[in-house]
């Protein structure tokens, strides 16, 4: 199963610990994760289930390309990081 890490900035708003989830695409992995942690879903995905504008996801060190359908492939032992841009003031 893929291992998923969420940005520490997200932990300030809700519990989002490192987790393992099955799936062959980012969408499948996240759907499985959010089934266990439904509140986290809207923090990462928008109303259309696309990746939020300033969020990004790395699979084994590469940013995903399909931010809408999240179809990028995930391997059995992939390491996934869900991160966000830093800005504000």
């Amino acid at each position: 199963m893929a291992r998923v890490n969420f940005t520490a900035n997200l932990q300030r708003h809700l519990s989002c610990p490192q987790a393992e989830a099955a799936g062959t695409t980012v969408r499948e992995v996240l759907d499985n994760l959010f089934a266990e942690n439904p509140r986290a879903r809207s923090y990462v995905l928008d109303d259309q289930a696309a990746l939020r504008r300033h969020m990004t996801i790395f699979i084994d060190g590469r940013t995903i390309r399909d931010r809408v359908h999240l179809s990028d492939a995930v391997a059995e032992m992939s390491s996934i990081h869900v991160l966000q841009a830093l800005s504000g003031g």
Binding site: N9, L10, H13, L14, R39, S42, Y43, V44, D46, R52, R53, H54, M55, Q84, A85, S87, G88
Partner: peptide, 19 residues
Amino acid sequence: DHGHFGVKLHRSAGDGWEE
């Protein structure tokens, strides 16, 4: 409005907030 994390709504009945 959490910016990157989207718009959220919280409710309180006087005993703390819940999303």
